[in-house]
Simulated assay, not measured.
Amino acid sequence: MSSTEGRERERAQRHQLIITAARELAEAEGWEAVTTRRLAERVEYSQPVLYSHFKGKDAMVRAVAIEGFDDLAARLRRARLAETSPGEALRAVSRACPEFAVARPALYEAMFVMPIDVPFASQDTPPALRAAFDELVAVIGPGGGRDELYAEVIWSALRGLAVLAHGRRMPAERQQERLEILVQHFAPDPADLPQGRASSAQMTLP
Rank of each mutant, 00 (worst) to 15 (best):
T4P: 07
S199M: 14
D124A: 15
L107I: 05
P142E: 11
R38M: 09
E148G: 08
R104V: 02
L39V: 01
V183N: 06
V137I: 13
E83V: 02
F120P: 04
D70V: 00
E67A: 13
S94M: 07
A172F: 11
R38Q: 14
T36M: 15
E32D: 15
L81C: 06
A162S: 15
R75A: 15
P105W: 04
V163A: 08
D134Y: 05
S199C: 03
R77E: 13
A198Q: 15
D124I: 04
R62D: 07
A63N: 01
A89I: 01
A128C: 04
P206S: 09
A106I: 02
A12Y: 01
I18R: 02
G141E: 05
M114D: 08
G143S: 14
R169K: 12
R23P: 00
A138C: 01
G145T: 08
H53K: 06
T84L: 11
V49T: 15
A65R: 01
T4I: 14
S2L: 13
L205T: 12
E10L: 14
W155L: 13
A79G: 01
I19Y: 01
V139A: 05
P48D: 07
T35G: 09
H166A: 15
A138K: 00
I181N: 09
Q123K: 12
S200N: 10
Y150R: 13
E27F: 02
E177N: 13
A21E: 00
A63R: 00
R95C: 14
G6M: 12
Q184C: 15
M114T: 10
Q123N: 11
L164T: 11
A21I: 01
S200C: 06
A92W: 04
E41D: 14
A79V: 01
A165N: 11
P119S: 04
G68I: 00
Q13V: 06
M1C: 12
A89C: 02
E29L: 10
V163T: 12
P105Q: 03
F120R: 13
S94Y: 04
A12F: 00
E109R: 15
E177M: 11
I154R: 02
P98C: 07
E180D: 10
Q175K: 12
A22H: 03
E135S: 05
P206F: 09
S46H: 09
E5K: 13
R130N: 10
P98Q: 05
R130G: 14
A201G: 06
A92T: 06
Q184K: 09
L50S: 00
R62K: 15
P188Q: 07
E44D: 14
V137L: 10
A65W: 00
F186M: 03
A131M: 09
A63L: 00
I181D: 14
R174Q: 14
V34W: 02
E99F: 03
R77S: 15
E10R: 15
L25E: 08
Q123Y: 08
R7T: 11
M1Y: 11
D134V: 02
R174H: 13
S199N: 10
V61G: 00
Y108V: 03
L39T: 07
A101I: 00
L182H: 08
T125W: 06
E32R: 11
R178W: 15
H166L: 14
P142Q: 06
E67Y: 01
Q16N: 10
L205I: 14
K55L: 12
